[in-house]
């Protein structure tokens, strides 16, 4: 089976800093990584390939330098990669992104039919969890989000059974292929490629598809133009006016501090004591 995994290159948000003076984000030197949620999907796709044979193609839409993420995915064992990159994609929101990606997947399908598409649960920069469902809708793929486990895949009957996380429980769902899956985090650990994988990844020519190459004829559906949402303002969270009232600790024992704390809490919020009392009752 041919499986497409959508991965996104994202700035490592752990390392993003806000400029103390200008309050803008400082991207300089911030390393990029594969969206960590995508790795669970990649690994699951690789496992299916190992079990049933076939091929895993990783796909990303992004600037030309996003090829480093694709190469990394190749070194983890993916077989092929496609970079979707075109100026007209700039400024895409999730609707426009899912359009571009769905178009590329449709194009890939023309030469090698795609049985499954994997997306990450969400990204750490956009963090919307919408691109996956968006692609599914556009390609009319059966949608399975928040999958914890793939129980069974029957290639000939084109059936799949999965366990999907819901609020308060797990749904066991069956549907037919082709389908789109987003994996829940923590469901597997992405593998480390072999030296062969590394050499192959370093050598692979990653094709860069323009919008036209991906079969997109109407660029009005892409990028800024194709995005109904716009970001009007970006700002750092406003600091709270006053800092915490400090409970005086100088020279006090822990017990004194605790007593002072209770007084301070109850003085600041008269109803709190009642809440605690009710609460502690059961």
């Amino acid at each position: 089976m041919h499986i497409v995994v959508c991965i996104k290159q994202v700035p490592d948000s752990a390392q993003i800093r806000v400029h103390p003076v200008t309050n803008t984000i400082m991207r300089q030197g911030v390393p990029t990584i594969i969206n960590p949620y995508d790795l669970f999907s990649l690994e699951e796709a690789l496992r299916l390939r190992d079990k049933f044979g076939g091929k895993v193609t990783v796909l990303t839409m992004g600037p030309p330098m996003a090829d480093t993420s694709l190469r990394k995915a190749l070194s983890m064992g993916a077989d092929a990669a496609v970079l979707l990159s075109d100026r007209c994609f700039a400024g895409s929101d999730t609707l426009a992104t899912s359009y571009a990606l769905a178009s590329a997947i449709a194009k890939i399908t023309e030469t090698e039919p795609v049985g499954m598409v994997f997306c990450g649960k969400q990204t750490i920069d956009g963090d919307t969890a919408q691109v996956g469902p968006g692609i599914a809708k556009r390609l009319e793929l059966n949608q399975l989000t928040y999958v914890e486990r793939i129980d069974a895949v029957d290639e000939t009957a084109r059936k799949i059974t999965v366990e999907r996380r819901a609020e308060g429980g797990v749904q066991v769902l069956s549907t037919s292929l082709p389908c789109l899956i987003t994996m829940l985090e923590g469901t597997n650990v992405v593998r480390r490629g072999t030296m062969e994988d590394m050499l192959r990844a370093a050598r692979t020519e990653i094709p860069m598809w323009s919008a036209a190459k991906a079969g997109i004829t109407d660029t009005a559906l892409c990028g800024l133009k194709g995005s109904p949402t716009v970001v009007k303002k970006v700002f750092a969270p406003p600091p709270r006016k006053e800092k915490a009232k400090q409970i005086d600790v100088t020279g006090k024992t822990a017990d004194d501090i605790a007593a002072a704390t209770l007084n301070a809490l109850f003085a600041a919020d008269a109803r709190l004591e009642e809440t605690l009392f009710r609460q502690a009752g059961h």
């Binding site: 993003i16 800093r17 984000i25 920069d125 963090d127 700002f235």
Partner: peptide, 9 residues
């Protein structure tokens, strides 16, 4: 956005 470092409208 960006892991909570910023807000956007």
């Amino acid at each position: 956005t960006f892991g909570g470092s910023l807000l956007c409208t």
